Amino acid sequence: MAKLQLTCSCGTVRGTTSDMNGKTGTRIMCCCNDCQSFAKFLEQEGNVLDSYGATEIFQIPLSYVKITEGNEQIACMRLSKKGMYRWYAQCCNTPIGNTMTAGIPFIGLIHSFIDNSSIKDAKLSDNLGYLQTKFARKTVYSDQQASQFFVMSKIVFNLINWKIKGLHKPSVFFNDNGQPVVEPKILNI
C-alpha cells in the first residue's frame, strides 16, 4: 500500500494521506454546477475542470488527510450558508477538497491537489465515470456516465462504514468542537 502525496500548485501546502489501495474510496468525475462554481471562484477552471466542466474527485475518509506544511494557508468557502465546505490553498488558489460537517467522515479530494505519480503508486481504483451530467458543458455519452445508483450506494456504504470506524477524527479541517479551523467565506450564490 502507498500514500497519496498532496501539494498545492506552488508547493506551500503539502500533505499526505493514510495508506491507500484499490478499495479505498470512490473516484468520480463531477459535473455539478457547484464544483464548476468553486473552480470559477478560485479562477482555476482551466486547471480543475475538464472539457465537460467536470472535476475529478477522490472520496476518502476525512481522517486520512494529513497536512504537513502550510496549514496557515488553508482557506474555506461555501456557496451558501448550508453548502459544503470547500477547502483550498489561498497561496495559489489550488482546491483541496470538499467536506460536509465535522461529524461526517468524508472528503472529496480534488485531483489538482494530488501528486499524479502517487496515484499510480497507490494503485487506486478506476474512475467510475461522470455524474451530474445535466450540468455538463457538452454531451456526456452514456458509456462515459457512472451509474448514479451504484455510486450513491457505494458512497452511503462507505459513509456508514467510516462513521462506525470513527474516521471523521482527527481532522485537519475541523477542530475538536466540530467547528471549521478557519471561518468560511460564504458566497450566497
Rank of each mutant, 00 (worst) to 15 (best):
N158S: 10
G97V: 02
G22M: 05
A146P: 04
L49T: 07
M29Q: 15
V140P: 04
E45K: 06
T68S: 13
Y85I: 01
I189G: 05
G129W: 01
L6Y: 07
S37A: 14
S63T: 10
Y88C: 11
D19F: 08
A89Y: 11
I60W: 08
S80N: 09
I60K: 10
N33V: 09
V65M: 01
P180S: 07
T133I: 15
T17C: 07
W87Q: 00
K169S: 12
K40Q: 06
S142E: 12
N47I: 06
E43D: 14
F38R: 00
F58V: 08
I155P: 00
E56D: 13
L109C: 05
M20E: 13
R14T: 15
T94V: 03
T94P: 08
D50V: 01
K169C: 05
Y85G: 00
T12Q: 13
N158L: 09
Q145T: 12
F174G: 05
V13H: 14
N127W: 00
F135L: 07
K138A: 12
K23I: 03
Q144N: 07
M20F: 03
D115R: 12
G22N: 13
M1R: 13
N127E: 02
M29C: 13
T12R: 08
C10Q: 01
G97N: 05
T139R: 12
S147D: 15
C30S: 08
D176M: 14
T94S: 13
T7K: 11
S9L: 14
Q132H: 15
C31Y: 03
V140D: 00
S125F: 00
R78S: 02
D50S: 02
I164W: 03
K81E: 08
C31P: 11
A54V: 07
Q132K: 11
F174N: 01
T101R: 05
F149W: 12
G166F: 02
N93G: 08
A122W: 02
F173S: 01
Y88L: 03
Q59I: 15
M1D: 14
C91K: 10
F41V: 04
G166M: 02
E183M: 10
K138G: 05
K81A: 13
M84H: 12
K123G: 07
R78Y: 00
R27G: 12
I60P: 13
T12S: 12
I107Q: 04
I114N: 04
K120P: 09
L131P: 00
G46C: 05
N116L: 12
Y85E: 09
A2N: 15
Q44A: 14
V181C: 09
M77Q: 02
G108W: 06
V48A: 06
T12E: 15
E45A: 12
T26L: 14
R78Q: 13
L49R: 02
D50G: 08
I104A: 04
I155K: 05
M152D: 10
K163G: 03
